[in-house]
Design a protein around this nucleic acid. Structure first.
Lengths: 329, 329
DNA sequence: ATGAAAGCGCTAACAT
DNA sequence: ATGTTAGCGCTTTCAT
């Protein structure tokens, strides 16, 4: 392994001079700098990041904690985080927790305050007291997608608004019997989406029909099974608001299997705007989350927090969803 | 920041004793070990990974280089790498290169020399001489998905076989005019798939019709546009072998837009088995890659290489594809 | 402008 | 079994 000493010896200067020449912001005679740079080239010298980090107390690395890389939500998010981080000189360590709290804690402990300068966490749940502890200990943290009240900085979506607008659109197009395929009510984002659904109906003078509220919290088949159940029951909806694109796709398959048409017989709106949904037939109408931008903003916030030693009160940034009209409505 | 010295002081022992007590494999009086552990608990001590890495010349971290996290191929792959790595005590640093060689080189340089113990690279192209250089310098590397001849260890798919079996299946079901939606011929994996297509036709006594070979290397619409072109041309195929699931989905939309039915009028087979394709209507018949297992094997190979100081000749592991029969054929 | 020396936190000889 | 010391590679005073 080539060290700074090897370069120093070849260039005929001291190690500290090499360090200064490389850093660039400390005055060094042009001639010596040239000698150093030539030696660096010749030896293919790369500074040891560990030694640098140990000395400086900073690694220019951020940890990104996500529950499940297989979830289509995350690629654009990761991309936003990753690109933004890179542009600011940071490297991203990605940690996939499998929705497992133990794995998450192990990662967090391992990486805390040493390997990593700060965290972006997309796995927060209401019971995530360990994240509160980190915040209290002064570890820079930004939450993504899910938040912890106002206790920790976060970037989230206005889920209520997304749902409200989607359902209002269906109503405005004359649909009356609108079913919802609901998600885990433990997560506030699904509660918010459910609220948006209810409020939009009320606003239009419609009532919430319990039979049209489909619980798909633990469905393996992403909406297919519950939609089949609804169609079998004889309750024929004229629209479906799915709280996830995957659930919308499952619902559409069920609808087609029953010989109905989308959107003529039943209109369907999804949520998330996964990239591939525009390739489907029919192309899916859905509520789009600005995932890339959310990842980007999270990094920007985190960098601000890491730079500012003096702590400021946490800010929750709420991003705007967009209803993307396509062919399923 | 709590260091080993703080623990030593509180426990009334030396720093080395603390180090030994924590490591576990060096004999320490039970009583002193208890004192140390108690101090560790009390102070919430976490060893500094940088100092440890600097001292030991090892970070238990591997770098995973992928071209584009937005590609649905990668989540299962990343998951396989990540889980396997974690079980062996390694952390994964994920790097997304945007298919940009400069970004890739920057990452590789930055991480080389001890931030990372080894690399898994899924971005290899024929011009990737920098990877050959790394191999020559003794940096542990395993290639994934794409390989570089026999020069570097790799885990890849038998792309020829996957295509051959898919097309043979269509032939066996009586389809005669089978179109292919082809990918970038610069990548050997698409050349292999094309070869498989051609050989299957020849074997069955059919000829390769140039008009049925659709080039979608740079198509933005993933098969839609070229499929529309084919249907307009009057050349009516009775089946389509798409070299990618995304291309299959685009093709299906085009077919439906022309009022034809899948699979009755035109059967469609994809390639990759993206997880969501089983939710589609029709559920997609496709060639499945064991992505999770490929990621897993890549890590296992890499760990073997990192442990074995004495270099062995590279081995290319070729994994078996599986034809998954669903409703689009 | 440059060199010498100290030290970041840790582990591993080397003593005892 | 435990303490002392050296040193991993780097940056940063402190001299000069």
């Amino acid at each position: 392994m080539i060290t700074i000493k090897d370069v120093a010896k070849l260039a005929g200067v001291s190690a500290s001079t090499v360090s200064r020449a490389i850093s660039g912001n400390i005055p060094v005679e042009k001639e010596t700098r040239d000698k150093v740079m030539q030696a660096v080239e010749e030896l293919h010298y790369e500074p040891n990041a560990l030694a640098k980090g140990l000395k400086e107390g900073k690694t220019n690395t951020i940890g990104l904690i996500i529950p499940n890389i297989g979830n289509h939500l995350f690629p654009p998010l990761v991309k936003g985080v990753e690109e933004t981080a890179r542009k600011s000189g940071y490297t991203v360590i990605l940690c996939n927790t499998e929705n497992n709290l133990e794995i998450e804690k192990t990662y967090l402990e391992k990486m805390q305050k040493r390997l990593v300068d700060g965290f972006i966490i997309a796995t927060a749940r209401e019971k995530s007291t360990h994240i509160l502890d980190m915040e209290a200990e002064g570890v820079p943290v930004v939450l993504l997608i899910r938040h912890l009240g106002n206790a920790v900085d976060a970037v989230i979506l206005d889920n209520y608004k997304g749902a409200y607008e989607a359902v209002s659109y269906l109503l405005a197009r004359g649909r009356k019997k609108i079913a919802i395929i609901n998600g885990e009510q433990e997560l506030s984002l699904y509660r918010e989406r459910f609220n948006g659904y209810q409020e939009a109906l009320k606003k239009a003078g419609e009532t919430v029909v319990p039979q049209l509220v489909l619980d798909d919290a633990f469905g393996e088949e992403n909406g297919y099974a519950v939609m089949v159940g609804l169609l079998r029951s004889g309750q024929m909806p004229d629209a479906v608001f799915a709280t996830t694109d995957l659930r919308a796709i499952g619902a559409i398959r069920a609808i087609k299997d029953f010989g109905y048409r989308v959107p003529e017989d039943i209109a369907v709106i999804g949520f998330d705007d996964f990239e591939f949904t525009k390739l489907l037939s029919p192309r899916l109408t859905t509520v789009s989350q600005p995932l890339y931008d959310m990842g980007k903003l999270a990094v920007e916030k985190l960098i601000t927090i890491m730079d500012n030693k003096n702590k400021v009160t946490p800010i929750i940034d709420v991003m705007e969803p967009t209803l993307v009209l396509r062919d399923s409505t």
